[in-house]
């Protein structure tokens, strides 16, 4: 089993998220993380999906078979940036506040709110660095944690919006009849 990060472009239509998640569930693919939202194109949603699987090509092909799915791309080995966001509430007394703020600043995180003995902080970073920051917060009085799914984007001039660039298995495959 290995963790794979997939970028999926899908038609923004009723039930599309249900179809995608239902497919992954019934094929016994394990979802580690899922985020979905608007893309730069109206009517097209973008999903970053992290799955734990020994056979990622089956995941890709099964997703690709869904009518509303436009592009599926495994970016695990591709040069890409990956980000997660976490909100954390930490209970601190005044003595510990300075240490927390120092740690937040060192981590490149932000304090969003200080009220009634607790601090809400936000971090947006690579999944590994978010993990490390959260582990630190656990030693400093972590009370609540909410993490998002992963967001991924490939580096450089890579066209995600042209479905056929990734869907075709060869020159002829996928072509409609001229008739």
């Amino acid at each position: 089993m290995k963790e794979h990060t997939l970028i999926v472009l899908l038609q923004d239509r009723a039930g599309v998220l249900h179809r995608t998640v239902s497919l992954l569930r019934r094929r016994q693919f394990n979802i580690t993380s899922l985020s979905v939202g608007h893309s730069e194109m109206p009517g097209i949603s973008r999903m970053t999906l992290v799955v734990d699987t020994a056979d990622v090509t089956q995941v890709v092909k099964q997703l690709d078979r869904l009518v509303d799915v436009l592009v599926v791309r495994d970016v695990t080995e591709a040069p890409s940036v990956q980000r997660e966001t976490a909100l954390a509430k930490v209970a601190v007394d005044e003595d510990a506040l300075f240490a927390l703020i120092t740690r937040v600043r060192d981590a490149g995180a932000r304090v969003l709110d200080v009220a009634g003995g607790s601090v809400v902080v936000e971090i947006t970073d690579s999944p590994v660095r978010v993990d490390a920051f959260v582990e630190d917060l656990r030693t400093m009085g972590l009370r609540e944690l909410m993490r998002t799914g992963r967001l991924a984007m490939m580096r450089g001039e890579v066209e995600m919006s042209r479905p056929q660039a990734f869907r075709e298995q060869g020159d002829g495959a996928g072509e409609e009849d001229a008739a």
């Binding site: 869904l66 509303d68 436009l70 479905p163 020159d171 002829g172 495959a173």
Partner: peptide, 15 residues
């Protein structure tokens, strides 16, 4: 309106 549905037809010459 089915941009995501493109069933294969002509097998690729290499395959």
């Amino acid at each position: 309106d089915l941009p995501g549905y493109r069933p294969a037809q002509v097998p690729h010459a290499d395959s």
